[in-house]
Every structure is written in C-alpha cells, then in structure tokens.
Write a protein that binds this DNA or RNA. Structure first.
Lengths: 241, 241
DNA sequence: CGTAATCTTGACCAACGTCAATGTTCGTGG
DNA sequence: CCACGAACATTGACGTTGGTCAAGATTACG
C-alpha cells in the first residue's frame, strides 16, 4: 500500500479554510491565567497565536503532571468539544494571544471541507507520536536523558515555528515546570542539568537554552527525534492579521 | 458553547459505513507475529477483530516501552497511513484475527461520509486521554498505583467490549509485559502485585485477574477512571461475519 | 518426563526524592 | 537608583523507592 500524501486533498489550503470558517475573535491572557480548566463543563476551541502555555493534570495526591507544552499554532480544546469538558487544564506561561474558534461549526466544516478533517486527523496522529515518545522517556530512560530529550524536542518544535535559530534561544520555563514534565523532583532536575552542562550537551541559564550540537544531545538522549517534533505547525499564522 | 453530541452526524452508522467501504480481507496471526514493524516502509491499516496485541517501541538502549494494549475493535496503523511508516511495532500476544482495510480509500470515504471523519477524530481524542493518564501515572505515581491503575483500565476496556464480566477475567499478560507497560522492573512488578494482593485490591494469578472492588482499587490508585477507558470500542463487530 | 521459560524471593545497590540551609534573581515601592 | 522581600535556583546530607543479581520453585511445552 502506498504512502498517502496529503495531495490526496488539496491540503495546503486546509488551514486557511479552517480559520476563515471558524475564527470568531481574539483573546489575550496574562501569564498564569487559564485557557481551559479541568472538568469545567464548557467546550471551547482555541488556536494559540502567540506565547507559551502548558497542558497539565493535577492528581489527587497533589502532584502535577505536565502533559504538553502548547506552542504557537497548536490547537487547544478539541477534547472538550467532543466530550463536553476536559480532563486537563491549560494555563498561560507567558502573556498569550488566542484565536477563539466556534466549535459548533466543526461538523459543518468537516462536511464541506474534507481536507480539514484530514489535516485534523494528521495533526492528532503527530501529537500521538510525541505522546508515545514521552511515555517511553518516562518509563525507560534516566533523568539526564529525559531532560536532554525534552530540551531537544522543544528546540525542534520552536525551530519549526521560526522561534529558535542557531544554538541559543529563550525558554520561559522554570525548574518546577521541567520537573513536572519529565517526572522528576525539582532538585533532581538540577542535577541532571548540571550533568548535561558538564558534558557540554545543553545549558539552560537565565531562561536561555543553548545546545551546541543537536547531534550529540540526540545521541546522548537515546532517542531519535520524532518527525512530529519537526512537523510544521498547522493553523499558524494562517489567518489574516 | 454547547457540548456537541455525535447526533450532529448520524454517527451510529459511521462504523458500518467505514467497514463496508474499506474492509478488504481477514488475516489470522499466531501469538508473537508482527502486525506492524517499526520503521518498515509500508502503510497498512487494520482493525483488530479478535485477540490481544501490544503496541510498543524498542529504545536504543535495548529497553522496551509498551505504549498500549490493542484490544478487539481497536484501529491499528493510522500513523503509517499518514506518515508512510510507523514509529512503533505491533505484535500479537495471543492468536489474533485482523480485518485488513484499504487505506487508499480513506480520503474518498472522508469526503463522502463526514460522519466517519468525526468518529475517527473522536476515537483519537479518546485515545489521547488515555495516553495522558498513562503519562501522569508514570511521571507521578508509585509502583503500586501504576500496576493498580493499569489493571483497572484493562478491566474497564474489556468490560466495554463484553470480554470481562463480574470480578474475574482472563488477561494474557506476563510480568515482563506489565513491567514494560508501567516502567518498572519485572521483579518490582511482583512486589507491587504482592502489595495489592495483601490489601485485597487485586490479584493476578495464572493469568486470571480478580478485582473484588473496583471502587477500592480506583481510590487506591489515585486516579479516576478515564471516560476513554469506558468508551465503547468503535468499529467492533460492525462488519458482517 | 525433561528442558526451558517464567515466577518468586531475598540480599544488596543505585537512582532519585526529601529536607534544610544558602545564594540569586526579580519585581516593587520608596 | 536603591532597598527590600518573595520567589526561585543551588547545594549537601540523608532517606526511600525501585533496580540488579542470583538462586530456587513453578509452570508450559515438546
């Protein structure tokens, strides 16, 4: 069976059609505000236009697990559209701008523009690949590798969006966030980052990430980069501004 | 914004339409055979009709991470359809029967039957919720809780398919599989199961799982059951046999 | 009925977590 | 521009969880 390229649809146009049909307005939030609250009975759909957000869950024991970092171009809230509420919260990490979409139009749009459904599905699959990788990371790799890979993946996702060039770039993340993302304690994140710095693999000081050699860090982390990390963000800056 | 029920489409019929349009043939595999090999340049789409399979990744360091257990009704191989190959392998755990689907028909089907796209998307979202939960489990919960929740989730998924009734049921899983699923060593899985048995929460002996009280185990595991675990499998036994 | 997996247990060890003390950064108001 | 306090970062000492190793018991299978 042949690989189905997206030429099967005129997919290049999918994002614009999507945004043109569904975009309702803008919202701006300051750092710390919620985009989505876990278990709230509202269904809302957004595209992150600018800034950083985190998607996370609070466990009954008080711990927090970061499920993903939300970057410009990412779609937020699909699960609340399908299920009426969301298992996770999404919170702004920096000042953030969002496109507010009208989810009630989704069924109509899918009917009239199958290419949008295709693009959505592909986006979900890519995200699942990243989830698979994170799972393997937490299940089977040590602290240094976890941090190393996380930094690598973030770098790639930022690069794909033109938000990271060369060896260094800004990451608005503190230790607690990194710890809750990779399943370590804050203190141990420190130790891991010290180890990476000592080996010249990665350095994160004053919110500036430096990775001298992607190749070296990738080899060390014991993981090939997922194509999903590299995949172009859909729906980003597809709308007129 | 209101919760969009699937009545927006006549979604009940989606599975039948899907299978009727795409089903090509059957395959039967014995335990241990591959359904999908990681990184093979083939794109294949299946529905598991009968038996158990695992979806997993082998890491460069030799470790294995189980990404998911594949149960009857689950769709396998979508990512190879979109990307031409798969990051993971899928291997039969028991003798298995699969429906072989013709993925090249997917674009057409999505165009002509938008309800199928909707159902697909919803299925992906549900699976992502389960992935989120597993991530939180590995990142933030201890050994006993991980095993406890895994058993609970399997029980629920089996029940939704009519493959588990009452307090006990068969699980064709060995220690190594459980260990690689929850990120523990084989030996420590033992210790966790002993702890669960000692508390009367769960027992897995001779491939028979017994959970006296779902409520107690759920409380202990520190996790509410995901609705996704309970969600009815789509595409199962929707085709004439 | 015998051989090879797999399961189970105990002893020991390494990785990671916790706690507490000290340094550093950053935002705020004077 | 400086002083202050509140987060946040960093370090070391120590505790706990889970990993490793090795041996014996049990089960599966030819």
């Amino acid at each position: 069976m042949a690989h189905l390229s997206e030429r099967a649809f005129r997919a290049l146009a999918a994002e614009e059609k999507f945004l043109a049909a569904m975009k309702r307005s803008h919202v701006a939030l300051v750092a710390g505000e919620f985009v989505i609250k876990a278990n709230a009975r509202i269904s809302a759909l957004y595209t992150l236009y600018e800034g950083w957000a985190v998607r996370y869950q609070l466990l009954p024991n008080g711990a927090r697990q970061i499920l993903d970092f939300v970057l410009p171009g990412d779609l937020v809230g699909l699960s609340s559209v399908f299920f009426g509420s969301s298992r996770y919260s999404v919170q702004a990490l920096t000042p953030v701008t969002l496109y507010v979409l009208d989810a009630t139009l989704l069924p109509t749009l899918l009917r009239e523009e199958p290419s949008v459904g295709w693009a959505f599905l592909k986006g979900r699959i890519a995200e699942q690949e990243r989830a698979d990788t994170r799972l393997a990371l937490l299940g089977r790799l040590g602290a240094n590798e976890r941090i190393g890979y996380l930094l690598l993946e973030l770098r790639e996702r930022l690069r794909a969006r033109g938000l990271f060039r060369g060896q260094s770039g800004a990451l608005p993340l503190d230790r607690a966030l990194l710890a809750d993302a990779v399943g370590l304690s804050r203190v141990h994140v420190l130790r891991a980052m010290r180890a990476l710095r000592a080996r010249g693999l990665a350095d994160l000081t004053n919110r500036i990430l430096t990775i001298p050699s992607v190749r070296n860090l990738a080899r060390f982390s014991g993981f090939p980069l997922t194509r999903a990390a590299r995949a172009q963000a859909i729906l980003w800056r597809g709308g007129a501004e």
